[in-house]
């Protein structure tokens, strides 16, 4: 599903922030991307989202060589990838319902065609009674869940989440993680960037990609 071959990235003339990355992410897999702050977790996620081009090496995403992709191909590919940003990136002037429905609206689908789907997902993430609320009045946890729901609404094949539990208490973090696990069981490959070791330990089956000194070390999860 995702394959990195000798990937390196530098910003401008600076040193390589990541180098010689060689790893794969299998379909329907579940992994944490971890490492200290500033190690390059977000950079790695941006490379997977194809919002950054590597300065060397090859990235294969969902069966495509990223170098050969044209702008239109990128758009089509992003519709198969869900992303949860660290800072949520919800649009403040839209309601929670509209924020979650945004990817479907952007695809040009009629509102009547996806209304039930969005309401169902909002109820699933526990925001059934906050559909008309706008992000500024949502709590941190509610914003997080809305951002996750927006990423899930297209039933992505690959889900990238950047510190999705960073702003919530441990109890809510576990509940949010269970959402991702359930999504993984439904067939989505999940990559979660986090530095919460305690949380990772609670989901020991997950593979860990540890970023440090610009390189990635992989630890396979414990089979349940």
């Amino acid at each position: 599903m995702v394959r990195f071959e000798n990937v390196g990235l530098r910003y401008g003339m600076g040193p390589e922030v990541v180098r010689d990355l060689n790893f794969s992410i299998a379909p329907q897999s579940f992994q944490f991307l971890t490492g200290p702050s500033g190690a390059g977790k977000t950079t790695l996620l941006r490379l997977m989202l194809l919002s950054l081009r590597p300065t060397r090496g090859t990235i294969h995403i969902l069966g495509h060589d990223a170098r050969a992709l044209k702008k239109d191909d990128l758009t089509a590919l992003r519709r198969r990838i869900g992303v949860v940003f660290q800072d949520f990136r919800l649009l403040d002037h839209l309601t929670t319902y509209e924020n979650v429905a945004l990817p479907l609206r952007a695809m040009g689908r009629a509102e009547s065609g996806y209304r039930a789907e969005v309401i169902e997902l909002l109820r699933w993430v526990g925001l059934g009674d906050r559909m008309n609320a706008s992000p500024p009045v949502l709590s941190g946890g509610e914003k997080q869940r809305a951002a996750i729901a927006r990423a899930l609404i297209v039933r992505p094949e690959l889900l990238l989440a950047d510190e999705p539990t960073g702003n919530v208490d441990p109890g809510l973090a576990r509940r949010l993680l269970r959402l991702f696990v359930e999504l993984h069981r439904l067939g989505t490959a999940v990559v979660i960037a986090t530095h919460d070791l305690q949380l990772m330990d609670q989901f020991g089956f997950a593979r860990r990609l540890v970023v440090g000194d610009g390189e990635v070390t992989i630890f396979d999860g414990v089979s349940s």
């Binding site: 319902y97 169902e120 008309n132």
Partner: peptide, 27 residues
């Protein structure tokens, strides 16, 4: 996920008050 929810099974009140179709760029 849970059983899919059809339009008919949604509470009519919830649908009636649902705010939607706001412009994507705030006016």
């Amino acid at each position: 996920m849970n059983e899919p929810v059809s339009d008919e099974t949604l509470a009519p009140a919830a649908q009636a008050v649902l705010k939607r179709d706001m412009p994507l760029i705030p006016s």
